[in-house]
């Protein structure tokens, strides 16, 4: 069972994520959706997740450089993945792979999930 948390202000992202997870894991997953960071932090404090997807430009923040300091202390063992449409090198802040999070373009999420992104 994969426990996935999605933090994105656009509710349609929940629909897409649900479809992609269903195609890969059938019903062997649980998707929790929230549309703001405060709700996301509460969800992280209340339960454990395998993966946290968070919108890179989650309002009212301007990017990962603003949200990472707020969320990093709550994710525990979960993989933290920043998602956005059309990532550029500028988005990838900070460019340190050891910080324990990654960036995935929303255009690639479906393929990445189908190729086992959440399996490890």
């Amino acid at each position: 069972m994969k426990d996935v948390l999605l933090i994105d202000d656009d509710i349609m992202e929940q629909k897409l994520m649900h479809v992609f997870l269903t195609r890969r894991y059938d019903e062997d997953f649980e998707l929790t959706y929230v549309d703001n960071l405060d709700a996301g932090l509460k969800a992280l404090d209340d339960a454990e997740f395998d993966v946290v997807f968070i919108d890179h430009y989650l309002p009212p923040y301007k990017g990962a450089h603003e949200t990472y300091p707020l969320i990093s202390g709550h994710v525990r063992k979960a993989s933290l993945i920043y998602i956005s449409s059309g990532f550029t090198p500028v988005d990838r802040f900070p460019a340190d792979k050891n910080l324990g999070f990654s960036f995935i373009d929303k255009f690639d999420i479906k393929d990445r999930i189908m190729n086992g992104l959440l399996d490890s």
Partner: peptide
């Protein structure tokens, strides 16, 4: 330019993704 690119790609991606669905 960066934000314009991102905000324009967002609806395009939805169009692509939901078209497939």
């Amino acid at each position: 330019a960066h934000f314009a690119s991102h905000d324009l790609q967002e609806p395009l991606r939805k169009i692509v993704s939901f078209s497939e669905l």
